[in-house]
Design a protein around this nucleic acid. Structure first.
Length: 151
DNA sequence: GCCAACGTTGGC
DNA sequence: GCCAACGTTGGC
């Protein structure tokens, strides 16, 4: 079992949205490294820290889990979608996704600022590395436990 | 294969 | 809204 952190802009899709629908195909990832984590690393049941980005208080706001194996992201073939990719071949889809299932909301937001302040305990962590822009990234079991212990 | 230009991410 | 950091694109 592995652990991950997945970013979402709450104005687009928040932890409350996930709580309401229960389960969501993680559409729109258009970065190869993030895709590779979903395609090659994720297995159903893996733990996911749900992170709000590009908002007043960016941070971890909930707990989810990987709920499917990777499969092609349908939005890449939809010309009306913001995520349409005309260069993707339907016989060899470029973009994959997994379904994410809601587990619970955290009692409070564990902010990016707090995580930065705890950098020493967390060790090497892509989220708090300078200039990091990955929207899907791996978390070690120790980091996962530690972050939740801050709740 | 190099690299400048451009677009995007995302914190602040 | 600003801007640093980074990925992608395309000319050469």
């Amino acid at each position: 079992m592995k652990y991950w952190l997945m970013k979402s802009e709450p104005a687009e899709f928040s932890i409350d949205d996930l709580a309401r629908v229960g389960r969501e195909p993680w559409t729109g990832v258009r970065n190869y490294q993030a895709r590779n984590f979903m395609r090659d690393g994720m297995r159903p049941g893996d733990g996911v820290l749900f992170y709000h980005s590009n908002c007043a208080v960016p941070g971890v706001v909930g707990l989810a889990e990987v709920a499917s194996a990777a499969y092609p992201d349908p939005t890449q073939f939809d010309p009306r979608s913001d995520y349409y990719d005309p260069k993707s071949d339907p016989h060899d889809p470029r973009w994959l996704l997994v379904d994410i299932a809601f587990k619970r909301k955290l009692a409070r937001t564990i902010s990016l600022a707090e995580l930065r302040a705890d950098a020493e305990r967390l060790g090497d962590f892509p989220l708090i590395r300078r200039g990091n822009r990955l929207s899907v990234l791996p978390v070690t079991a120790a980091q996962f436990r530690h972050i939740l212990s801050l709740e």
